[in-house]
């Protein structure tokens, strides 16, 4: 999808596989994310998103495949990667006995690029008091603290794994509007994994959909949303579909109604469909990211 040289890539995975005994969590995943891109990574629960992220972070060894993050080989420089990556996991396990100021000082000692001024700005922005103990913070405030820790060393790559899970809409809005947009404006690479597709849509330039450890598609957000359409065709009495159009993601026949979701939709798609099948009527429906996501998953499940 994106042609780039290795030095332009923030993340480059080639045929990455992760197996746990008999269970394959990630299957030959290949992915290229250029520096400065905002990548949205979506998939159902257990699809392999967190496993992929943990391999990118160097926390989990790959069973097979090659990976480079910011030019660092994941098979040999796992510890190095963490110096340049800011990571916000779904659940936060920051030392509860520490005060906010102590956590900040503790983390600061590990990064040469730590920006004290930026850190103070973020703490002020989120209303975090350095004297407060982490165990006394609400879930939203802990997430904000995790974001401060991930951002204050000005990472070249920011990885967010379900960062907004369980947060109320106001906090989510604040994080997306104030933080993620500013990161994207600074031309840092963002890797966002989330179930909140509206957030993914707003933040990401490129979206990848993963299901059962396999990457189903990677496409620029606008191309994915505008190029994926649902066709609602009515078959002639007593007829069955003969040929699905090229780029069919998912289709279903119910009575005379034939629903087809296609990618890379063009006006030719309708013409070809009409000429190859006995159809009475055709309607083209625009889809939101949520519907597109669901249809990719349904299609993969049918194919499996």
């Amino acid at each position: 999808m994106i042609q780039a040289t290795s030095s332009d890539l923030a993340i480059e995975l080639v045929g990455v596989t992760k197996r746990y005994r008999r269970n394959t969590a990630v299957r030959e995943l290949s992915l290229q994310i250029p520096k400065g891109a905002a990548f949205g990574f979506i998939g159902p629960n257990g699809a392999g998103k967190t496993t992929t992220i943990r391999m990118i972070m160097g926390l989990l060894p790959m069973t097979a495949g090659q990976g480079n993050v910011l030019g660092i080989n994941l098979n040999s420089g796992q510890d190095q990667v963490k110096r340049y990556v800011g990571y916000v996991p779904e659940q936060h396990f920051i030392y509860r006995w520490m005060r906010v100021g102590q956590v900040v000082r503790f983390c600061r000692s590990f990064y040469e690029t730590w920006n004290d001024k930026y850190c103070s700005e973020l703490l002020d922005l989120f209303g975090l008091d350095g004297h407060q103990k982490v165990k006394h913070l609400s879930k939203g405030m802990v997430t904000k603290l995790a974001l401060v820790l991930a951002l204050a060393h000005e990472p070249e790559l920011l990885i967010l794994d379900e960062p907004m899970a369980g947060l109320d809409p106001l906090v989510r809005e604040e994080i997306v509007e104030r933080v993620l947009h500013s990161i994207c404006e600074r031309k840092r690479t963002v890797f966002l994994s989330s179930h909140t597709l509206s957030d993914v849509r707003r933040v990401s330039d490129v979206i990848g959909i993963i299901h059962e450890g396999q990457l189903l598609t990677v496409a620029p957000t606008e191309q994915l949303v505008s190029g994926t359409k649902r066709i609602r065709a009515v078959l002639e009495e007593g007829q069955q579909p003969k040929e699905s159009p090229e780029g069919t993601i998912w289709n279903r026949v119910q009575g005379r109604e034939w629903l087809i979701t296609v990618k890379d939709f063009t006006s030719n798609t309708v013409e070809r469909l009409r000429s190859a099948n006995p159809l009475q009527n055709i309607e083209v429906i625009d889809l939101g990211l949520e519907e597109i996501f669901k249809d990719y998953i349904r299609g993969a499940e049918v194919a499996a």
């Binding site: 926390l59 510890d79 110096r83 996991p89 659940q91 920051i94 509860r96 590990f110």
Partner: peptide, 11 residues
């Protein structure tokens, strides 16, 4: 308390 995970994410 899984604070070992927090440490694992640091350099």
């Amino acid at each position: 308390d899984r604070s070992s995970e927090f440490l694992a994410y640091l350099p």
